[in-house]
């Protein structure tokens, strides 16, 4: 929660700075994005052993559920995008393909259009907040496993303790694998989609 608050403050300060001081923010953003992707790659490689162990124990669920999350996110973006005049349905679909990974989706889409970047960040950031707020309730109404899809990529790290606490041990294992597979696919998905749909 502390990081979430810091990020919101950074975003507001950035908006203020951008309006008042004309500097080359694009260059700063590019360098930081390269550095962040390098660190993400490093983190994934370091966690590979525990991830493969988890994947073995839950089988089909570990592959199917992340795919449903990604497809659902894309369809959701497409449907809402068709109803919003300010945004093309293609851009809306790319934005929701971030599946809650706001730190990647926002900065990456900023390289194409700053407006897409801001909406990409807010859409995916609010997905994490929504997961934190609604998972404890939804888990009772629906079921612990399908409710994991609300969190998208965040179920691997920030919302994992929540899933374990309210969904149980099995849901915790599924959530980790779910978050990992979504996190693995999202960068490639964003790359391919932006090439095909936005350029």
């Amino acid at each position: 929660m502390k990081l979430s608050l810091t990020l919101m403050i950074a975003l507001v300060l950035g908006l203020f700075a951008g309006r008042n001081f004309q500097l080359d923010y694009r260059a700063l953003s590019d360098v930081m994005l390269y550095l962040m992707l390098l660190l993400i790659g490093l983190e994934m490689a370091q966690k590979r052993k525990e991830i493969f162990e988890d994947l073995k124990t839950i089988g089909l669920l570990s592959l199917g559920l992340p795919l449903m999350t990604i497809i659902g996110s894309m369809v959701g973006g497409l449907v809402v995008g068709m109803a919003i005049p300010e945004l093309s349905h293609r851009a809306a679909m790319v934005i929701t393909s971030g599946c809650g990974w706001y730190s990647l989706t926002g900065p990456y889409l900023t390289t194409i259009d700053p407006f897409y970047g801001l909406v990409g960040f807010l859409t995916n950031f609010s997905r994490e907040i929504t997961m934190i707020l609604v998972y404890p309730f939804v888990v009772r109404l629906v079921d612990p496993l399908s409710s994991i899809s609300i969190g998208g990529a965040t179920t691997m790290d920030s919302t994992l303790p929540l899933v374990r606490r309210f969904g149980g041990q099995k849901a915790g294992v599924v959530a980790f694998a779910h978050g990992f597979i979504v996190s693995l696919l999202v960068p490639f998905l964003l790359f391919v989609e932006t090439r095909l749909l936005l350029r």
Partner: peptide, 26 residues
Amino acid sequence: LVFAMGAQAGSIKVDGMRSLVISLLL
């Protein structure tokens, strides 16, 4: 990165509230 992203959006005068509403719908 988030600061730089906000700054880029701020420099093209993006409407923050409109962006937030669109984001919540998406």
